[in-house]
Amino acid sequence: MEGGVKRLPVHERFYSWQGEGMHLGRSAYFIRLFGCPVHCPWCDSAGTWHQDYIPKNVERFSPQELADAAAASGAAFVVVTGGEPAIHDLKPLTDALGAAGLTRHLETSGAFPIKGDFDWITLSPKWQKEPLTENLQKASEFKIIVEDAESIHRWQDKIGKHFSKTKPVWLHPEWTQHKNPEVLESITRWIKEYGDPYRAGYQMHKLYQADLLDPNSRKSAPLGGDVSKGY
Rank of each mutant, 00 (worst) to 15 (best):
T94Q: 05
S45A: 15
D117C: 03
A99R: 10
K126E: 08
A96T: 01
L106Q: 05
G83L: 10
T81C: 12
L97I: 07
F61M: 14
A76T: 06
T108V: 10
F118W: 09
L66R: 01
A70P: 03
D119E: 11
E65Y: 04
K143R: 15
V58Y: 06
T103H: 08
P131K: 05
I145Y: 13
F112G: 06
D89Q: 10
T103Y: 11
I144T: 12
H88L: 07
P92G: 02
G98Y: 03
E59I: 04
A67C: 09
K138I: 07
T122Q: 04
A69L: 13
A71H: 06
T108L: 11
V146W: 14
P63I: 08
T108C: 10
Q137M: 14
P113S: 11
P131F: 06
Q128V: 06
E141P: 09
D52Y: 01
E59K: 15
I87P: 05
A75C: 00
P55S: 08
H88T: 00
L123C: 10
K129M: 14
K56S: 13
T48R: 07
G47M: 12
W120S: 05
A76R: 08
A69Q: 10
K129T: 11
A70H: 01
S124Y: 09
I145S: 15
K115N: 12
W120T: 05
V78G: 01
D68P: 00
I121N: 07
W127T: 07
T122R: 01
D44Y: 13
A71F: 08
I144S: 13
E84H: 10
D68E: 15
L66V: 05
E59M: 14
L93A: 04
T122K: 06
L136W: 12
Q128N: 12
T122C: 14
W49E: 02
G82V: 03
E107T: 12
A100T: 04
A96L: 01
V80L: 12
L132R: 13
F112W: 14
P63G: 10
D52L: 13
W49K: 03
